[in-house]
Every structure is written in structure tokens, then in C-alpha cells.
Amino acid sequence: MALKINAREVGSAAVVDVTGEVDMHNSPELRKVLKRLVGAKKPLIVVNMSGLDYIDSSGLATLVECLQGTMKNGTKFSIFGLNPRIKNIFTLARLEQVFRICESESEAVGAAPGGKSEG
């Protein structure tokens, strides 16, 4: 299934909806979008993975790189909407301890300054 990426604003947060499959061929597309948001120093970047069927190592690495960027900027990064299989892929790569993984968009966006709660 082809990769679809849609970036939108929710308050001060940038929410990136990722749908389909992320692999070695198309992960640079996701990287481009995330790098742009990191460069813009958005206070919170959230990746919505609820439409994601598969993510390979390059996709995971792209998310790690984005997290590194937000940490350097002093901003925040969260992900949400992981189905059980995607969650297992994170666990296999031992990344569940690295990311702030939220159950819902409202929980993830709540970490933005001025949001419902500080994460």
C-alpha cells in the first residue's frame, strides 16, 4: 500500500498523519516532511500512525532522527495510534522505551505548550 503523508496544525502542534507502508524506498518522503517541521522548530511534532500498516527500519530510523532533532531544539515529539503489529515492531527494535507513545491524538497533542497538559 502506497505511503500517504498529511501534515496539519492542531493548536501549536504539528500533526503528521502517516498512512500505508513506510519502507526503504519511500521513507525519505517522510524524512523530508519531518525535517521541515524540525527546522521550523514547531513546539510539538506528533505523528499519527493509526493508518499505518507497516514500517521498516528506515521508517523507524526516520522517527528517531526526528526525535533527536526535537531534543536538540528543546521541543517535543510524540507518536500515537500504533496498532498491535506496529507496536510489536517498536518492541522488537527496543524503541518503545525511546519514544513518547500516546494512546490518542488528544493525549499526544496535550503535551504542546498551551495544550491540555504538559507531557
Binding site: M24, S27, P28, R31, S57, S58, L60, A61, T62, V64, E65
Partner: peptide
Amino acid sequence: ELDDAIIDII
């Protein structure tokens, strides 16, 4: 064609 930074994380 992955960038070196991505390869290093992988």
C-alpha cells in the same frame, strides 16, 4: 539511497 544519518541509526 538512505542518508548516512539514517543508516547510522539503523
